[in-house]
Structures are given as C-alpha cells and as structure tokens.
Design a protein around this nucleic acid. Sequence first.
DNA 1: AAGTTACTCAACCAAATGGTTGACAACAGC
DNA 2: GCTGTTGTCAACCATTTGGTTGAGTAACTT
Lengths: 119, 119
Amino acid sequence: MSDDRLSRVFAALADPTRRDLVARLSSADATVGELAAPYDVSLQAVSKHLKVLEDAGLVSRESRRAPVRLEAEVFDLMTKWIDRYQQQAEERYQRLDALLAEMQEDRPAREPAREEDAS
Amino acid sequence: MSDDRLSRVFAALADPTRRDLVARLSSADATVGELAAPYDVSLQAVSKHLKVLEDAGLVSRESRRAPVRLEAEVFDLMTKWIDRYQQQAEERYQRLDALLAEMQEDRPAREPAREEDAS
DNA sequence: AAGTTACTCAACCAAATGGTTGACAACAGC
DNA sequence: GCTGTTGTCAACCATTTGGTTGAGTAACTT
C-alpha cells in the first residue's frame, strides 16, 4: 500500500469491519473491548483494525484504555477529492450533451429532412 | 478483500495510480494505451488497474479497444456513506458541546462560586 | 504491593495485491 | 487474407493484509 494520507484513508475504509467500527463510533465513543465484542474475531484482530484506522487519522485515543474517538474531519479529505473529479466529469458530460444537442439542431439545416424524418 | 460494492470502490481508490487514472478520465475518455503511457509500469499492470476500477463500477468500456469512460455516479455511493456518519458524528459533537455549555451555566447555581472562582 | 483486567506486541500463516514477462486474441489497415 | 498493433490472460514473484495464538505490558482494584 502507498503511504500517502488519502491512500491510507481509502484503504482503511475498504474493509467492512473497519467501516462498521467507524459507523458505530459515529454514534458513541467506545473502548477497544466494547468495540470488539460484537465481532467473532479475536480482540487482537480488532486492535489491529483500530491501528489501521488510527494510522489513517480516522480515530484517536488519549491513552491505551481510553475510549476511541472518531475524527470526522478526515472525511473532508475524501469528499474534497471525490467532489473535484465528480464535478469535473459531470461538467464534461454536460458539455457533451450540449454538443449533441447542437448537432441535432444543426443537422436539419445542413441536411434537410427526408421523408422518414418529417413529422 | 470483501466483495461488497462499497469495499471494492474504496479499495480501488486506495491506490494512487488508480486515483490518477480516475483523475485523468474525469477530463477525457482515453484508451488503455493512452492511459498507460505516462506511467513507468507495464501496459499489463495498467490493464490490471483498469480491471479493478471496472469491477468497482468506476469505469466502463463498450469494447476492448474503445476509450475508457468514467462512471461518476458511483461516487454517490461513497459520498452517501461518508455523509451519513460524518453528519451523525458532528451532531453528536454538537450535543456534547451543548451539554458542556449547559454544565458551565449550571455549575455556579448548584455550587456557588468560592473566592478563587469569583470575578 | 499483588492480582486482575484490558490491551498490545511478536511470530506465524493463508490469501490477496501489484508488479513482472511471455504467449495469445482481436481488431485495423494494407 | 495477411500483418501489425493493441490489449488481455497466465504464470510467477515479493510484499501486504487479515487472521490466528501466546506472551508481555500497563493500568485499575483491593
């Protein structure tokens, strides 16, 4: 895995267990033990998942046994990236639509309607 | 990796090369060869990256040599997930702030100011 | 101070990932 | 209908990932 910030955040959220941890932490802070309880994997496995989330900056803790807290600001990193390219793509499709519409308008003028095209 | 849709999308975007492909495709459709040109990895590697993006529903093609097209709607999947938990977390923090503010107001009434606290 | 509880570290394992090279398939152009 | 170009498939390799178990550390409790 690449180690840049955005890559770590996306990679962290690519795992359904970790997404579920984030979902639960959005309702309430919780300790590692509390977080681990619902899953049928070992506590160590959940501890590792939390480390991945922590390395991505998605969660934090003040000390070992302190409740884990969601760092929701990191979401902005993602939404900014997404919005940028989504917007760019949509603008492009709008221009394409406009172009097609323009071609539709122009054609009858340049190539007058035949019988089949007439209303 | 889990095979649910959201996992595939996040995993696909966890790689910087694939994010760059998406970024470039947001400006213009392009063939596999065109997309591969700027990178110093093999064409096969880029072809694999595109397959990952395609399996995630992020890009599509009409035929093998046709230009690759970005499917920007998939971004909505992510933003919906993100927004939901970001919003939930933020509301919770607002309630926490409100609670703290309330406690600040209440304390002087319940526990009258001692000398040190007085203005 | 000692014991329990809560968590992490370390070593290991199987499977997935990102890359390679070589052979193959499919489509344009002559 | 060949031929060259474009892209994919297959096999392989090193590294990473997500899981395990066992041992260790750190912090409450008494």
